[in-house]
Simulated assay, not measured.
Amino acid sequence: MNKIEIDINQRDFCYTCYRPSVSCMCEYINKIETKTKFIILMHPKEFKKTKNGTGQFTKNTLSNSELFIGIDFTNHTKINELLEDSSNDCYLLYPNETSLNLSKEKIPSEKNIVIFIIDSTWPCSKKMIKSSKNLQKLKMLSFDADKLSEFKIKKQPNEYCLSTIESTQYIIELLNKQNIENIAKEELSNMTKPFEKMVEYQLECLKRRKDPRYKAY
Rank of each mutant, 00 (worst) to 15 (best):
M1W: 09
M1G: 13
N2W: 01
N2I: 13
E5N: 10
I6S: 08
I8L: 03
F13C: 12
T16S: 09
M25T: 07
T34H: 07
T36R: 00
F38R: 02
H43V: 09
P44D: 08
P44M: 05
K51I: 08
N52H: 01
G53M: 02
K59H: 14
L62E: 02
S63M: 14
S65N: 05
L67I: 14
I69E: 04
I71E: 04
N80T: 15
D85Q: 07
L92S: 10
L93A: 08
Y94K: 03
N96M: 08
K106N: 12
S109H: 00
I113P: 02
I113D: 00
F116V: 03
W122S: 01
P123V: 04
K130Y: 13
N134A: 14
L135H: 00
L141G: 06
S142C: 08
D144S: 13
D146L: 10
K147P: 10
F151I: 01
K155C: 13
C161T: 13
C161I: 07
S163E: 02
T164S: 12
I165G: 05
S167W: 03
Q169W: 08
I171L: 11
E173D: 11
E173T: 12
N176K: 06
K177N: 10
N179K: 11
K185R: 12
N190T: 15
M191F: 05
K197C: 15
M198T: 09
E204L: 12
C205D: 07
K210S: 09
K210F: 02
D211I: 11
P212F: 14
R213E: 14
K215S: 10
